[in-house]
Design a protein around this nucleic acid. Structure first.
Length: 556
RNA sequence: GGCCCGGUGGUCAAGCGGCUAAGACACCGCCCUUUCACGGCGGUAACACGGGUUCGAUUCCCGUCCGGGUCACCA
């Protein structure tokens, strides 16, 4: 019936649906195995939400076997950016998310269900679009933007129960064949729309792995399937590709929930089985409202939030496995306890049950990320830390990089000081921040503003430090060194036993804690540090003595 | 605005008709301790609201409120 229209629309398409499908044989997946995909658009830097989606897809698939592939959704030519595919691939690679099939570079694919970028699949979509036109389930639409707008205006005026292109409002839906043929021949601009069979007000139950059964009105819109440039819309491409490529589980962002009825109708129109759907809630952020009253949640925004960009985490020096751990704690309530038990297991050993993923969007929590990262770093070996920091510094911190190059051994020894039985460091950029006295070659203590707690001791400090220097021997081990500090303390009437001091503080000038803090401050410029003896042996004999001397000079 | 989804402490969350309503992060206190940290112990803090159903509701139903999503030839 509409064969003539179909041919007029797609004169170059000779392939049939059967032939096209024959090129994509069903996947021979083992029992229980799944096939999933990550399908981003190359429109900018990788978003943390995209990474989250990719990660969950990946874990879900790895933990039960199957195929995970990367498909590039580049049907919107206007939004493409230079090297968009490379951006995606390198970000995923950096976060150790690997694909079995899909785009592997700006131009190359791997796998036999490709091509894996939609711009290269134009003819395939057209085969199925042509078929739908032939069987009368799709038709060309010649409406201009202005006409569409006028339809909308009339719907508003008539208070139509639903706005959009459907039913009697669909101007091109029932154009007679001769008119259509004539307009095509005339070169009128056209797009193709599906002819929906849905009825207004009729609900159906759709299933989502996270939310369960969803009752929604079936689709009634004659959605566009082929755009003016001959490429498909997202919806049509999703249906054709995920069928051909054998996707069993579509795990994507929840902004697609509203499109489920549309997608299901398309699958059914084409006679394809419908995949299982899982819609992930976005990662949110609190924002102070514009009037300054209270806060509201909103999705992490590419434009406003630096932490939305995955590159942010690498630049800050969060270990990649820590970021992954954090994302998974958001993704599944089961993950944290599992991780406690299996601190050294690869993430892919975790069996992800998507039905246990929360339906509400989680607020991004830096406190939690930092805690997860500290634990992660705490479990790394010093060798792993050395390698990770070296690699990171090379990319993001010239000063630390230089230090490691010039003082590799020193740096290696320094790791013990802040790593052993400590959880101070969440990200590599903390190192310079926390420990300038270890890593800044030009480090000098500012004796201008002494800590308030020093005031009562001010007059005695020079004598104490002079005595300390007198007895100091770089070769002393930790016990010997501290023994001498105690001797100095006793000489100046600083109580060496904290218990005794607390009972009768009035009997002493101060405590061993006070006295230690003078040395600590002279060495590091702060009163809170890791083990002092360890620090002394990282900065070396010269600095260990020199800094105290310099401090003494400034005091006098 | 219509439709859809969501709503347990500051945050992430267990719970799935009967509990003194877990746990983690953050915060506070104590202990340990030469500082800090680590570790141990303890603490503050929650079922959005109003109706039902039920012997009994955090849990089931309805409404309200709040938050989010979606209504394109963008994905």
């Amino acid at each position: 019936m509409s064969k003539r229209v179909a041919d007029a629309l797609f004169p170059n398409i000779k392939t049939t649906c059967e032939e096209a499908q024959a090129m994509y044989p069903p996947r021979a997946l083992p029992e229980g195995a799944v096939c999933t995909r990550f399908a981003p658009s190359p429109t900018g830097f990788m978003h943390i939400g995209g990474l989250y989606t990719a990660l969950l897809n990946s874990i879900f698939t790895r933990s039960r076997g199957g195929v995970f592939f990367l498909r590039i959704e580049d049907t919107d030519q206007k939004r493409q950016i230079e090297n968009g595919v490379t951006e995606i691939i390198s970000a995923l690679d950096e976060f150790q998310i690997h694909f079995d099939e899909g785009a592997v570079s700006e131009t190359e694919d791997r796998g036999s269900y490709g091509p894996y970028r939609q711009s290269l699949r134009r003819e395939i979509y057209q085969v199925f679009a042509k078929y739908l036109v032939e069987i009368g389930r799709a038709y060309p639409c010649f409406c201009t933007a202005d006409e569409l707008e006028s339809i909308r205006a009339r719907q508003e005026a008539a208070d139509a129960p639903q706005k959009g292109y459907y039913g009697q409002w669909a101007a091109c839906r029932d154009l007679d064949e001769e008119t259509v043929l004539k307009r095509i021949a005339n070169g009128d601009r056209w797009i193709v729309r599906m002819r929906s069979g849905g009825k207004l007000g009729v609900s159906r139950v759709y299933h989502d792995m996270i939310r369960g059964d969803l009752s929604m009105q079936e689709n009634i819109l004659d959605a566009v399937i082929i755009k003016g440039d001959g490429l498909p819309t997202y919806h049509f491409a999703h249906v054709v590709d995920d069928h051909l490529m054998g996707t069993t589980d579509v795990i994507r962002a929840d902004e697609w929930i509203a499109s489920i009825p549309l997608h299901v109708e398309m699958f059914e129109l084409l006679g394809f089985p419908v995949p299982r759907y899982t819609h992930l809630s976005p990662i949110m952020k609190n924002e102070v409202k514009e009037d300054g009253e209270g806060v509201s949640r909103r999705k992490l925004s590419k434009r406003k939030d630096p932490e939305a960009r995955v590159g942010y985490y690498d630049e800050a020096g969060y270990p990649i496995p820590a970021v992954l751990d954090y994302l998974l704690t958001i993704g599944s309530a089961d993950y944290e306890p599992w991780r406690e038990e299996h601190m050294d297991a690869p993430i892919y050993d975790f069996r992800l049950d998507l039905s246990k993923t929360g339906a509400a969007g989680a607020l991004f929590d830096f406190d939690k990320l930092n805690n997860v990262a500290k634990k992660r770093i705490g479990h790394m070996s010093e060798e792993q830390i050395f390698d990770a920091v070296s690699a990171w510094a090379k990319r993001h911190d010239a000063q630390l990089d230089r230090f490691i190059r010039d003082n590799g051994d020193t740096f290696r020894r320094s790791i013990t000081v802040w790593h052993e039985r400590r959880l101070d460091v969440a990200k590599w950029s903390d190192l310079m921040e926390l420990y300038p006295y270890l890593y800044d070659p030009d480090f000098a203590v500012d004796a201008g503003a002494l800590p308030e707690s020093f005031l009562a001791h001010r007059e005695r400090i020079p004598g104490i430090l002079a005595d300390y220097l007198e007895t100091f021997d770089y070769e002393d081990d930790s016990d010997a060194w501290f023994g001498k500090v105690k001797e100095v303390a006793a000489r100046h009437n600083y109580c060496v036993k904290m218990g005794a001091y607390k009972k009768h503080p009035e009997d002493y000038n101060g405590s061993i804690a006070d006295l230690s803090s003078f040395i600590r401050y002279a060495l590091t410029g702060t009163t809170n540090t890791p083990d002092l003896h360890g620090i002394i042996h990282v900065i070396g004999r010269e600095a260990a003595i020199g800094r105290v001397n310099a401090f003494l000079e400034k005091l006098n």
